[in-house]
Amino acid sequence: MEKNRLNKKDLGNFLTILKKHYSNIISPGLDDKNSPVFRLINSAQEIVLDKITPIKPPKEFLFPQSEELMTYDKNDSYTPTRIVEKTKFAIFGARPCDIKAIEYNNLFFGNKFNDPYYQSKRENLLLIGISCEFPSSSCFCTTMGISPVESSGSDLFLTNLGTDYLVEWVSDIGKAIQQFFAEILTEAKPEDEKMKIKIEETTRSKLVEEINLTEIKGKIIQTYDKEDLWKNYSEVCIACGACTFNCPTCTCFDVQEKMESLENGTRYRTWDSCQFYDFCLHASGHNPRGTKMQRLRQRILHKYQYSIDQLNQWSCTGCGRCIRSCPVGINTRSILKDIKEELHG
């Protein structure tokens, strides 16, 4: 893989060059309460990389919460909303948990039938990753087999070496734009790889816990009928959907029509949650997942079993946002530990 060093003082220049090719740059910044948030930035000073990852994942830039799909005219039927997302944009400073989540979403939205709304944004995205040095107390990426310094899935990947960043040009797109930055790049050194390993070890030591899931991968469906295991958590759950809204791989949506006048209107999609009561509700009144136990079980099994059955990959990346968002303190790691105990005694 092509590698270079970039002096941290040149970050501003880096962004200036980047902006010529990718007009919008999204990065973790601070909101008015000093909490990290992914948003459009205009200068290197706004970038904040030394805090835990923002609680809202960058999925809204590829899959917005409310998105117009088409307009309609009663006399003429439906016209698709022009997907004029020709604006190229870059996400700067996504950690491996978020990069892997975007990788999963690419797989999902492109599986069998292609989703053009997602794809048009994804095609215009440059994903610049960064090694994670500041995990939260809820993070568990290593449990899901993801290293806090792995670059796969990104276009280019930065690692903090102290005064410099190590820049790895990972994908074909990344390699193609390397030339634009030639003036500010210097040679990578052989010892830089060791720094990555050091960061990985340090970050790993900060994680509250790591659970070995290799033995139970693919077998989690066997806990389907163990209702007491699920009820321990679903009794406490308030079915609010906060975990699904903040999860970077949750992509369920509702499609609705909205009248603007008697003759025309729009059809839009908006985030929906499998934790809501009416998610599966049939018109007849029958509800296949009418109890909280069924819905909580569905979420866990989807993340840890069904996604493997369908796409051969965990859809959870261990970013810990579900644990951070839960108003009643449900801990997904506890659920995984309970499942492991149930299957292995």
Binding site: F113, F253, D254, P288, Q298, L301, D309
Partner: peptide
Amino acid sequence: ENRMKCGIGKCGHCNCGS
């Protein structure tokens, strides 16, 4: 039969297991 929205396996409503 199940509740459906998109018909193409994206919206997640009609899943039954995997």
